[in-house]
Design a protein around this nucleic acid. Structure first.
Lengths: 104, 104
DNA sequence: CGTGTAAGGAATTCTGACACG
DNA sequence: CGTGTAAGGAATTCTGACACG
C-alpha cells in the first residue's frame, strides 16, 4: 500500500529525438501534440523538452486516435474524462480510508 | 516465470547531460568510467551516448567505491566477479530445468 | 590515477513562419 | 487541422590534449 511510484516510468528524462525514435512520430508531431495540450513534457534549465516512458505510451495512444481520424480536441476531452474518473476514485478511496481510520 | 525484463529500467535512452544531473557526477567522470570499462552506454547513429536507469544505479555504486579510495581497476574486477556469479547461477538453473523437463 | 578545462567541430533542439488543404 | 520544411540561433555532445599530482 501507499505511494511507491517514484518509478522510472514517470521520470522525465528523454529528449525529443529519442522519443521520436521510440514512437516513430516526427518531432513536429510530438511538439504539435504538446501545443494541443495532449502531452506535458518538462523542460531543462535552458528549455529542452524532457519526456517519460509514460509519455511514450500516451503518444502511442494519441497516434492511434489520430489515425482513426479523431481530432486533437476530441482526444483532449477523452483525456480529461479519464483524469476525472481517476480523480473521483482517488477521493472515494480517501473517504473510505477516513471512515476506516475513525473506527480504529 | 520467464524473461519479462524488456523493462524500462534497462532501456538506453538518456543522454549524458541527464545522467550527470541524475547522478551528480561530471560528464568527464562518466566518460572516464566508460573508458575504464565500468559502464557500457550505447550510441545513437551519430555517436551520442545513451544510458539506462540501470546505468544510473551502477554509476552511484562506482562513485561510492571511488570515494572509498578504490581504484577503477579493482572496481572492474569486482564487477567481473559479480557477473561470473550470475553466469554460474543461470547455468545451474538451466541444468535443473533440463533435468526437470526430462522427467516429464 | 582520476579529473578539470579550453578548443573546435558536429549534431540536436528550439521557435516562429510559410505552405498545403 | 495536422504536418512538412527551410532558417538561424542557442545549447549539447564528442574527441584528443594539456595540466596537476
Amino acid at each position: 500500500m501507499a505511494a511507491d511510484n517514484t518509478s522510472y516510468k514517470d521520470k522525465k528524462v528523454m529528449t525529443i529525438g529519442i522519443i521520436s525514435e521510440l514512437t516513430g512520430l516526427s518531432e513536429r508531431k510530438i511538439r504539435y501534440y504538446e501545443e494541443r495540450k495532449l502531452i506535458f513534457p518538462e523542460r531543462t534549465g535552458k528549455g529542452t523538452r524532457k519526456y517519460s516512458f509514460s509519455d511514450v505510451e500516451r503518444l502511442m495512444e494519441i497516434a492511434d486516435h489520430i489515425e482513426d481520424g479523431i481530432q486533437t480536441y476530441e482526444i483532449k476531452k477523452e483525456l480529461k474524462k479519464k483524469q476525472n474518473r481517476e480523480e473521483r476514485n482517488k477521493m472515494i478511496r480517501g473517504q473510505l480510508n477516513a471512515q476506516f481510520n475513525m473506527r480504529k
